[in-house]
């Protein structure tokens, strides 16, 4: 009976970890998307976005494949550089690259039939 209780506890911990992973990825992706929208209008927000990503990437690296995080980190830094440079074309193209990577991150963790299968 003790063993089944421990098994239920481990099962719940695993489930909670999965849910936490899903929530943290979802919230990070949403925040990044809103930062990217704002950065298009206000380039100053790019450094704020970069600081936010730096904080979150540490937690995300516990759950998400490190290659995906590295790609987003590089893209966020490039977006920040582009926003600071004032080159509008470079900034816009970099924002769309980052947005695509964030979308991939979000979609890879979505509870969908596509991902399950």
């Amino acid at each position: 009976m003790k063993k089944i209780k421990v098994a239920i506890f481990i099962f719940l911990v695993a489930l909670a970890t999965g849910i936490f992973n899903f929530l943290i990825v979802e919230s990070t992706a949403k925040r990044l998307e809103s930062y990217l929208d704002s950065t298009e209008k206000d380039p100053q927000l790019a450094s704020e976005m970069s600081a936010f990503w730096e904080r979150r990437s540490g937690i995300l690296s516990i759950f998400v494949h490190h290659d995906v995080i590295d790609k987003i980190t590089r893209s966020v830094i490039k977006t920040k550089t582009a926003a600071e440079s004032g080159n509008d074309y470079f900034k816009k193209s970099q924002i769309s690259v980052t947005r695509a990577l964030v979308k991939t991150l979000k979609e890879s963790d979505e509870i969908s039939l596509k991902n399950v299968l």
């Binding site: 063993k3 089944i4 098994a7 239920i8 481990i10 099962f11 911990v13 695993a14 970890t17 999965g18 992973n21 690296s61 516990i62 759950f63 998400v64 494949h65 490190h66 290659d67």
Partner: peptide, 22 residues
């Protein structure tokens, strides 16, 4: 594969062991 998070290995092991107990 060190770029794979450790949790991605631990969670399936935990779930499988629990399923086996159940």
């Amino acid at each position: 594969n060190t770029s794979q998070p450790l949790v991605s290995g631990l969670i399936p092991i935990a779930v499988l062991v629990c399923c086996e107990i159940f």
